[in-house]
Design a protein around this nucleic acid. Structure first.
Length: 345
RNA sequence: GGGGAGAUACCAAAGCGGCCAACUGGGGCAGACUGUAACUCUGCUGACUUAUGUCUUCGUAGGUUCGAAUCCUGCUCUCCCCA
């Protein structure tokens, strides 16, 4: 098990970083986790701010996943994807080229290739065709990326994305092609989209045996705390996921003691802290009973607290993982901690 | 004192002779949520039991009817208006 992969990358607490921090953390609906030096979260939506005293680089996605998740109103062609804006109904076109341009102008440190993300249930012939398209698009992305310059005086990194659905030979082929490109980091996409978790782990293992260990390997869109720890065990360095915020907004809290649904009446008179570990100010400043009251009363503050807490939990989780890797006890720790945190309270 | 309205399951509120164990919200219970437009979605919520089964429910006591939460009468309580 390539557990050593993450450990081989030097872990640095973001507070120890000074001049080399340039990107502010933008806390909104999305966050990103990055296990490489000096990196711990975050991005997107609603004003630049720090998150719980942390700072990190910014990452933007290409819109490839939206093509998958908003599947109703889109058309995929060789040129790119056309779809209707959910805002004003106007017709939009994403191409590998304009997606690179857009991400240049947003100025993220890490930008993603434009790919197609087929459903986890796709048959082989479609997966094959889809991967071929993704690979042609990747060439165009890289070409555009190389013929344009960053707009704000610092370099940006373009990560290609390994696709191939649940077909090992496709994943391996994709990984080999991408490894040869020698980009700054590499991503694994098209997982946790309907296939069984075991299949996902199988694919990660196959891909990570090919992608270079000395560059970040980014598993896109994953996942549950369990998924993340399993993926780390398989050598993944970097994640992003809506789960802490979306599930938080829906009243689900991840804590070091287990998962709780804060809406449940059992918390009505529970004045204990959200998380005894005290990972974040939310955990000690608010009680479960108060948070439940906020959520039940439709006070937006309740959902904010849930989101911030869950983000802090995810960061705690990967921080611990990093520490345990460095101490050489990751596997044992993983087994124990999973039992705790996946427990429903 | 006079006139009027109403009492339905934990709460609110439909139903106004059979299709009602009773619409719909809320509450409660359970589940979902994985490269985020969206503080969202789904199921259950009388009892026994788990089946196109039985039993007990719509303030209370009677009555009419093959059949009543629904119609009639008495009683109890609540609310509104005028004095």
């Amino acid at each position: 098990m390539p557990v050593g992969t993450v450990g081989s990358v030097k872990a640095v607490h973001p507070r120890e970083l000074k001049n080399d921090i340039r990107a502010e953390i933008i806390l909104g609906n999305t966050y990103h986790l990055y296990l490489r030096p000096g990196t711990d979260v975050i991005r997107a939506g609603g004003g630049i701010q720090e998150f719980n005293g942390w700072k990190g680089p910014m990452l933007t996605d290409s819109g490839g996943f939206q093509v998958f998740s908003l599947a109703t109103a889109r058309k995929i062609t060789e040129e790119g994807v056309t779809f209707r804006s959910h805002i004003d109904g106007s017709k939009c076109l994403f191409t590998p080229e304009n997606v690179m341009d857009i991400q240049r102008s947003i100025g993220a440190d890490i930008i993603m290739a434009f790919d197609e993300c087929p459903p986890g249930t796709s048959e082989y012939p479609y997966a094959l065709k889809s991967l071929a398209l993704t690979e042609r698009w990747l060439k165009r992305c890289i070409a555009r990326f190389r013929e344009t310059a960053p707009l704000y005086g610092y370099e940006q990194a373009l990560f290609p994305i390994v696709q191939g659905c649940v077909y090992k030979e496709l994943r391996q082929r994709a990984a080999e092609n991408i490894a040869r490109l020698n980009m700054d980091g590499n991503a694994i996409g098209g997982l946790a989209v309907g296939e069984p978790a075991e299949k996902m782990y199988e694919m990660i293992e196959a891909v990570n045996s090919i992608l270079p260990e000395d560059k970040p390997r980014y598993l896109m869109g994953v996942g549950t705390p369990e998924n993340i720890l399993e993926a780390i065990a398989l050598g993944v360095d970097m994640f992003d996921c809506v789960m802490p915020t979306r599930n938080g907004r829906n009243g689900m809290l991840f804590t070091t003691e287990g998962m709780i649904n804060i809406r449940n009446e059992k918390w009505k008179k529970d004045f204990s802290p959200l998380d005894p570990e005290g990972i974040c100010f939310t955990d000690t400043d608010y009680t479960k009973a108060y948070l439940r009251h906020l959520v039940k009363s439709d006070e937006i503050l309740g959902l904010q607290i849930c989101s911030v807490h869950n983000l802090a939990f995810y960061m705690w989780l990967v921080r611990e993982a990093r520490k345990k890797i460095e101490e050489g006890v990751f596997s044992v720790w993983k087994t124990g901690i999973l039992k705790k945190i996946t427990n429903r309270l």
